[in-house]
Design a protein around this nucleic acid. Structure first.
Lengths: 146, 146
DNA sequence: GAATATAGGTCAACTTTATTGACCTAAGTG
DNA sequence: CACTTAGGTCAATAAAGTTGACCTATATTC
């Protein structure tokens, strides 16, 4: 790989870092107002995307320990954002769902990010959305080759 | 925003999260072998991109406190990856540079990520690179509107 | 039915990585 | 000379994670 190509790629690394940081800034600010943190947001996000998700599934998705998940999850339950009910098919399993209040907060948090992405893709056209997603998918898939 | 559009955007949020996590996984693993952490990588990366960068500039770039930067930076200096020399134009200012050893480590770390990006853009074509970068730039710029 | 495995919860000790505040030196600048 | 800036360092604290151990309840398997 020649020097020039390497420098072009360095720009992509820098953009990735700054874009991610910027992207999480706004939600982080809102979270702080509610006295909760980024992991709370992730929990809310994935419970919103996957209603009735089990604790075990959530653990695997977020790649944190049971003990690390526990405190924020309990907080969300106590604050009335999430419900945790035994599953019918297996009463050991707890199914997590957002309450109405939880849906509202999750929407507030993620809307900032959705709005940002939507505005960009609207300016740049639908192809840009497809391309951007494709690149991100390939980054994720690459992992499997190693 | 209708439900369907919202779900499409949710996919982008998920991709962003997982892609970033995957992207930092490999370097993190290498860093661990050297007994250093992600902040060390960021220091190495930005010093590599901006030779002679001052401590103050680095602080602003990384958005951490002086005290948080200090320990890892000193470690990198002690391990012989970085040099810190008083600047000619102002002897209060320390100019940071990579040593040869530092350049080697930085290359090792960032090559993983550069290689990943390069492979993707080679498969998808040069337009995909331009588009992806454009989206990321807009995410960063958006910050200023708020 | 007893043994074992799984889902989940909780306590404790510890580690890492950051924060803020205070204070120091050295070197420029008005 | 007074003040500011760049940088370094100590101390107390906070947050967010880790591992290990142990508990209950419920399924599953032999």
């Amino acid at each position: 790989m020649d020097k020039k190509r390497e420098e072009q790629l360095n720009e992509t690394l820098m953009l990735f870092y700054f874009a991610y940081r910027t992207f999480t800034n706004e939600p982080d600010r809102i979270l702080e107002e509610h006295g909760i943190q980024r992991l709370h947001h992730r929990i809310l996000f994935f419970v919103a995307r996957t209603p009735n998700i089990s604790v075990h599934e959530l653990l695997k998705t977020l790649e944190v320990s049971k003990q690390a998940l526990h405190a924020p999850m309990r907080q969300l339950i106590e604050m009335g954002y999430i419900t945790s009910e035994p599953a019918e098919y297996d009463r050991r399993v707890r199914e997590l769902c957002l309450t109405e209040k939880g849906q509202k907060l999750e929407r507030q948090l993620s809307n900032v990010q959705r709005g940002k992405m939507n505005a960009i893709f609207e300016t740049m056209g639908p192809d840009s959305e497809e391309t951007w997603k494709q690149v991100m998918k390939k980054i994720i898939d690459n992992e499997k080759d190693e």
